[in-house]
Computed example of a mutant assay.
Amino acid sequence: MSQDAPLILTEKRGHIAILTLNRPEAMNALGAPGDGDQVAAACEAINDDQDIRCVILTGAGRAFSAGGDVKAMKAREGAFGGNGVKVRDGYRKNIHRIVRAIYGLEVPSIAAVNGAAIGLGCDVACMTDIRIGADTAKFGVTFLKLGLIPGDGGAWLMPRTIGMSRAAELLFTGDVIDAAKAAEWGLISKAVPADTLMDEALALATRIAAQPPHALRMAKSLLKHGTTASYDTLMEMSAAAQAIAHHTEDHMEGVDAILEKRAPVFKGA
């Protein structure tokens, strides 16, 4: 797997950041040394940039990501090299950094799944908030076919994404499903023609990026915590976040826009 080019490219279009997995010759396989650091650095930069309101994650070439690099597994190198302790650390310090960084994005994130999203690649897509798939995309949780288990948090995330029964079916069979079935199951929001995928993702990101940025980040945080926090805990978090939102200029802009019957212009103030 080539180490010459960076794994991830970042482009900024207005209030939208586009992250592209950039290893097309290897179908954007993951797990090389430093992959976690690169993804974490890109995501941390986005979190620190208050001008960014939405992120699109996609893949270069014909795949979104084929997942863990099988050639590296065969050679027992990179994140898959050494004894059991070293392999564990390779997951915790490298592969887990990839999924934790994407899951930890503070702004809404969209996966524009342009091709195969297999194993770790499928789980990476599911770490985003919203997924749109090209009609040519394929999805699979194929760890068992390699004699492995989901080592990247997929066993926690997948049932929360599509429900326990369908998550179990995907994992236990190792089946690869097409974009139409992925949309039917709720793995993606919809399947679109491949040549319109980025246009669709950008249109959705533009609608999201029109929202007040501080409230948008807090809303995402509440939505995520709502999957694990108790009702009472989330109610307390909601009250505190709402108190902050009430004291922003964007709140007043939203109120004025409704009263004046015009579109609001949120500035992050």
Score class of each variant (00 low, 15 high):
N114K: 07
L157Q: 11
R53V: 02
E25T: 05
V85K: 06
V87N: 01
K190M: 15
L223T: 11
M164Y: 10
N47Q: 11
I110H: 04
G147I: 05
G268I: 05
A179W: 04
H214S: 09
D4F: 10
D48P: 01
M237C: 11
G186M: 12
K74D: 09
L21T: 01
D49V: 04
I149Y: 15
T206C: 06
G104E: 03
D48I: 03
K220I: 05
A26D: 10
N22C: 01
S2A: 14
S65K: 05
M73F: 02
A5E: 15
E200Y: 12
D195N: 12
Q211V: 04
S165V: 09
L222D: 10
R217K: 13
P150I: 00
D69Y: 01
V265P: 00
G154Q: 02
D4S: 15
W185F: 14
G133T: 08
I16L: 01
P6A: 14
S65M: 05
K224N: 11
W156D: 09
T206F: 07
V70F: 05
A257P: 08
G84W: 13
G163Q: 06
I95K: 06
K74W: 02
K190Q: 15
G31V: 02
V141W: 09
V124Y: 07
A191H: 08
W185G: 00
E260D: 12
K181E: 14
G59L: 11
I208C: 02
H15E: 13
G90H: 01
T142P: 00
L7M: 05
I98S: 11
I132Y: 08
K220R: 13
